[in-house]
Structure formats: C-alpha cells, structure tokens
Design a protein around this nucleic acid. Structure first.
Lengths: 228, 228, 228, 228
DNA sequence: TCCTAAACGAGACGGTACGTCTCGTCTTAGG
DNA sequence: CCTAAGACGAGACGTACCGTCTCGTTTAGGA
C-alpha cells in the first residue's frame, strides 16, 4: 500500500555499492548497458549495471565540475537513469558521495609498516593527497564535508560511517607506534584529530599540492608532540 | 558609460559593514528603519540601516535554520530589503557570511599573553569554541567553508580575506613564543596549520563541545612538537 | 542525453490546450486538482489539469489586471503551478495569450452566410467586438499585440499562427462574395487588411463599444470600395 | 515643503521638448554637454542640453534595440542624465515616446494637394511608411501603441494628444476632397478610421515595406467606398 | 552681496518579474 | 517489482528595470 521502505531492507546502499564497482575497472555508462543503449529492469531486484552507471556518472561529473556543478538531475542524465532509481538507492547526496569515494578504495592507500611512525604518516599523507588529486575522490570528499554542513543526516553519515571507519584503519598504525614506544597511548586520540584536521584543512583550502618537505615537518611535529 | 565597479571603491563590504554593526548591540531590522516602516535611499551612497538589517537578518536566519535553510531570498524578505541591495554590497554569499561572522568580532577573542604558548593557545581555543557555540558565528563559519567548496570566488574570499587575516592576528602569539624560545621559528607555519586544522575539524564535525582536558592535551602536543 | 525538445513533439501547446478547456465550462484551478489540494505528476506526460489551471489563472488575471498586471509569476501563483511547468508548455508569453484567446473560441463567432457581404461583415464585427468585450479574450488579444512589439518570436507567433489562421476562417466569407459578384477577386487581399486594421485600431484604442451605425457605415465603405 | 509639482507649471513636457530639438539637427549627447564631459544644472530652470541628450539617447536606443530593449535606465545611462531628470520632464514612457516621435516632425510629411484624394492619400501613406522606416519614429510609435496597452494614462495620451492631433492635420486633405465632391462628408469619420487602421496594422505587423501597388489598391478602395 | 529656489548627476533603495536550475516526489509503460 | 522517462510543485538563483528618494553641486534671480 505505502511506498516501499527506502532503501529496501537488506540492500544498504553503503554495502551494496562497493560490490558493484569494487572490481577495480569502473564500468563506463556506455559499457554498463546493453547494445540497445537502453537499460531496463532485470526484475524485482537491484540492477548492478544501473548502480555502476550512476556511480560512474557521479564520478565523472564531480571530476569535471566539482561539487558546484553537481546535481542529481545531471547524474541521472549522464547515467541514463531515472531519478527515482538514484533516490531509491542513495537517499541522500552524502550516500552517493560516499559511494563515489569508496569506488576508488580498491586502488586505495595501503597501510604502511616502515617501523617508524613519522615515516608511516608521511607515506600515508602523501598517498592520501595523491589519491585526492588524481581521482575524483578528492572532490567527492570535499562534497561530502560540504554536504554534511547542510544536513544532520549527512553529518552523521560522515562521522559514523566514514571518519570512524577511516580511524579504524589508521588505528593499526598508531597501535604499532605505541607498541614500539614511540608515542604515549593517551595521546593517540588527540593525535588522530591533529592528523585529520591537517589533511582536511588542506583539502578544503584546495591546497593538497605535493610538498613533501612541508608535510614532513608537520608530521614530525605531530609525532614529536605525541611522544610523551 | 559602463556599469560602475561593484562594489564602489572605498566601500569594500567587508570593511564598511563592521562600522555599522560593530557597536556590539546589533540593531534589529525593525529598529534599523525609521518609524515609517519603509527604509529608503539616503542618496547616492550606502544606507547603513539597510546594511545592518541585512546582516541582522542573515545572522538570525543562520542561527535558526543553519546553512541548509539559508537563502538570499529569505534574507531579503526578513530584512525588508531588495535582493539587488544585497547583491550590490555582498556579491557572494561568502561575503555575506564573512560580514555576519565579523559582526560578532567586536565581542571577539582577545589575544592572550600569559607568558606560555600552551596557556595562550588553550585560552584561545576555549574562547573560540565558546564564541562559535554561543553566537551565530559558528554557523556562519561552517556555512562559509561549505560555500567555499561550491564557488572558487568564495574559496578565494575565505582564503585571502579570512584565513589570512586570522593568521595575521595569531602571528603575534607565535612571535612571542619564538622570542621566548618555546618554539623554533621554522615550525610556526606548520604549527598554524595544525592549529587551524584541529579547530576546523571539530567545528565541521559539530564537536566544539567544551572539553578542556582534551583541548589541553591537543594543545600540549602541538606545542611540544614545535619546540625543536 | 541532451534536454528533450521544447515542447515535446505531438503536444504543441496551441493544439493540445483547447482540448483541455474546450468544453465550455473552464475548470477553475480548485476543481482542476484532486481533493488533496496538491496537483502532482501523472507520469511522463502532460497533466491536463495543470494546463487547465494555468489557462484559467491567466484568463482571470488578464481580466482583472489587464496586460499591465500580467506576469508569469502571478499566473503560477494563482494556478498553484511551478513556473517551469508554464515555461515547458508555453515558452513565450505570446503562446500563453494565444492559448487564453483560443480557450474562448468554443463560444466563438460563427461564420455567417446572409447572402450579402455587408451583412456578413456587420454581423462578424459586432460578434467580434461583443466577444472581445464580454470575455477575457479582448484583453488577451491586446496583450498579444503588445507582446509582439517586444519580441520577434511573439510577432512571428501572432502573424503566422494567429492572423494567418484567422484570415483563413474569413476567406470563406469573401469567397462567397466573390462568387456572388459583390467584390472583385483582386481586392480581397486589401479588403482583409482594411477589415483587420479597422478592428485592431478600435481594440487598441479601447473603443470597441457597441455602435452599430458607425460599424455599418465603415463596413459599407469597405464593401463599396471593393466592388469593382 | 513637499515635492515640487511634477512637471513644473508652464513647462509641459510635450510643449517644451520640440523647442529644444525642433531645429532639425538633433544634437548628439556628446555635443549637448560642455567640454568637461559633465552636464550640470544651469540654475532653477530646465537645461535644454539635458533634454536634447535624453531625447537623442532615447531615439538611438529605440532605433538600435526597438521597444523590447528600451528602458529608462539605459536612456539615463546613454544620456549621462539622472533618472529623476527624465521622470521630471517625461513622467510617463509614453511622454518620452511622443517626444521622440515629434523630434522627427521637422522633417515630417507635408500635406499634399494634388487635386485628387487618392493621389493625396497614396502620397501620404508612402511618405509615412518611409518616415517610419528611415527614422526612429516607427519604433517610437510602435512603442507608444504597445505602452498604451499597459497604462490608461498612456492610452489617453496616445488618443488625445497624438491621434487627435494627427487627425486634425489630415482633416484638411479630406475637407478638400469633400469640397471637390470626391467623398461624402458623412463618410469622413469612418474613412479616417480605415486609414489609421490600415497603417497601424501594417506597422504593428512590421510590414511597412514599400509596396506602391498594394498601397494604391487599398487607398483606391477607401476612396471609392467613401464616394457616396 | 547674500540667500533661496530649483535643476542637475549620481546612484542607492524596496520591489517585482524575469527565465533557468535543482530539488525530491509521483506516475506511467514496459520488461 | 524494478527500470527509464519525465512531468510536477516548490522555490532559490542572479539580473534587469521600475519609480522614488536623498545627496551635494551649480546656477540664476530676487532681496
């Protein structure tokens, strides 16, 4: 009688999406549909080709126009998808941004283990900035942060699904450093915030240019400060 | 022959506005206009009452609805002002946000001089967060950052008119610390970035709750790291 | 990929609209929408209820305020319609005026056949002026002519879609007169212009008052002049 | 205490203006002001240079852009005049259009006296159309008619100050024809309407191209019809 | 010689309409 | 029951123009 739940149970957008595009070679909209040029329903379940086409369109749009030129209408147009299809699976722009961001995660930053926290962090920062610069993910993340300022739900998504997850991945680096005695365990929490803040600040100011010396100095300061 | 520059020389929006509302008691729209209820031109020059009414309307709107519910239309409606009047003096939303932010600057954070960089920074952070929490300025600043992601002009305004200016004000604190030998001069630049990043991260995550211990620890880390 | 044509093929505004409202009793905006008070999409095709509501709103607005007080914004407001809906189907004000004019065509002037050109024309002029006086169509037509002075597209619409069409309907009257030998065939073209000019002049001067004797004299002159 | 009367007594716009520009060579805006490039008050009376500049600007604007692109703002801009100066002397757009029209009157159509009404009218129509085609007056008149549809005051101005005046000048032609026995006196009134209607229709449809044969036929019909 | 009056340019003001864009919802027709 | 398609109401966007107002300047003419 009423509208179906949104999203349908068991197909959480943030879980299903990676399955679609995780394979590394993100399908282009053209390749995602059959030869007819018209992609149609495959029955009462999600069409992976549609999801891929939407993600790919959002990716390219973010890369070309940035957050400013991004709109659901344009994504639907490029993807050859209906808007309800998009809203069904990514009820919020934030969800779509997250999906775009995670579509690049396959080629993502490996957690380094160089035996030195400073070296690890330098490696991470440089890899992260290069990732942001060379993929649509930088734009996606800027968009996600901006979007989070307009919508509490988006903020929650950013905080709980994204930052928290990223923090978990970082945790291993800091745990190793604690074990090596490089930093005090009580400082880890604040160190993480400094680390995030530094990266966000640069991203939001559009200053993620490659500047190894400057990065090295900032990292060195963080590590030194957390020593004891 | 052509249209005059926008804004006219000598009446830079970000400079003239504070004069209007800097006196601490921001006039309400109602009080900003005469008894007639209709505010009109005062000749071929800016009407301070209009400027004040627009700023006040933008302030209250930002406070009530946040960045999401903010629109120039609504500001014009509340201020009893015409939209061209707003665009004349604040060509960009960012300009308006900056004006709103700076309207609270009167009650702003005094640069402390406690003889210790850590104490100075703790004082500053706590004052800044309280400022963000208790005035519309927190919302204004979040809005400004978000807006800067949609518009290169806004980003330039944020970077060149705002962050740069704020950095200048901070410089004195760090200069004193350098003179006292607390930190190495070469570290100042990176330290400023860590400081900004930490505050921005908390603001954008809407976590500027009062947590003196945590703040103290982060500040301590920054200072320690910059020592040598 | 690109935006669809505007308007979509097969739904020419000036053809589809009459079907909606031709039934004589123009539905009011209220009756044009369901009980919910909110009119929404009926799928990927034109909603006749919306079209009817827009026409009705434009009619009443023209009747109340005339061409001066007419605006798309106000039409949208009264019709409870979105502006893009109006622009989608009536890209030009002229299109809307034509639609309003033709909405009254149901009660329109029957082509008379009295056996005498002078009697036919007298009947036509009196019926036309009464039509202009007693329906919003007089205002709509004045508006259309005025609009045509501001916009080449509107002028083309007036000339090609309207005057030409009206001339066709008149042709039959003159053809009969030619067959009866009342007028020379070579004079028909100029006679039509005199006839149109006479009516337009009176309408634009707002002097379509009922004055049968005066009309009779003018008609008589035209017919006499075209005799040989 | 209150605003001065508008316009000041004794300087009716439609009377004073011709005096300024009637001399045939309409001064350009540049020549209308002194060498300084800035035209200022010449005391508590009308500045003819300003009036001339405004008329000239309106003329050229109408010629370049037509009624569509005409605005008081643009006239003021081109004339280097203040908007209140314009509104002071031409309270209505219609007044300004009339002034522009009459600025060309110097080179206006001479009343012919060929001894034949048909020849007189042919001469008049051809001269009028040429006048409309080759000067800004055609545009001015179209604008005046269009403007009259938005404003009863403009309509009154068109009817009482303009059409009536023009009719007076024509009267002499018809009076001569009556004296010659070419037409019946009772037909003059209707004949004038046919004559006006024919010209207006062609002007408003932007079809005042030179077509002597067609004009001759229409004129012949009018004269024949008015014979008796 | 001063003073009052009025026109001048300039341009800001509150409005309002423009035509376009995006939003998120809704309904279809077809697989 | 999903899909592409696209219409829908809503309303913000930034611009143009409207007609009014006040400014400070300039000049003329009466006291």
């Amino acid at each position: 009688m009423s509208r179906p739940p949104h999203p349908p149970p068991g197909i959480a957008p943030n879980e299903a999406t990676p399955d679609v595009v995780q394979d590394g070679n993100v399908p282009s909209p053209a390749s995602a549909m059959g030869a007819s040029g018209r992609r149609t329903s495959i029955g009462a379940r999600r069409n992976p080709a549609s999801a891929a086409a939407v993600i790919a369109a959002a990716r390219s749009l973010l890369q070309e126009k940035g957050y400013a030129g991004f709109s659901i209408d344009e994504v639907a147009r490029r993807a050859g998808a209906g808007k309800p299809t998009i809203y069904r699976w990514w009820p919020t722009k934030a969800d779509l941004f997250i999906a775009v961001y995670q579509a690049d995660k396959a080629a993502t930053i490996a957690i380094p283990d160089t035996g030195s926290l400073a070296r690890d962090l330098r490696t991470l920062v440089n890899a992260l900035w290069a990732f942001w610069r060379t993929t649509p993910s930088g734009g996606a993340f800027r968009a996600l942060i901006a979007e989070a300022q307009t919508n509490p739900a988006s903020l929650a998504a950013l905080r709980d699904r994204f930052v928290a997850q990223h923090m978990c991945r970082l945790q291993i680096v800091f745990d190793r450093a604690v074990e090596r005695g490089e930093i005090a365990p009580d400082n880890v929490e604040a160190l993480v915030e400094l680390y995030f803040g530094f990266n966000w600040f640069r991203l939001l100011m559009n200053r993620i240019d490659d500047d190894p010396d400057h990065v090295a100095r900032a990292v060195q300061m963080m590590v030194e400060g957390a020593r004891r």
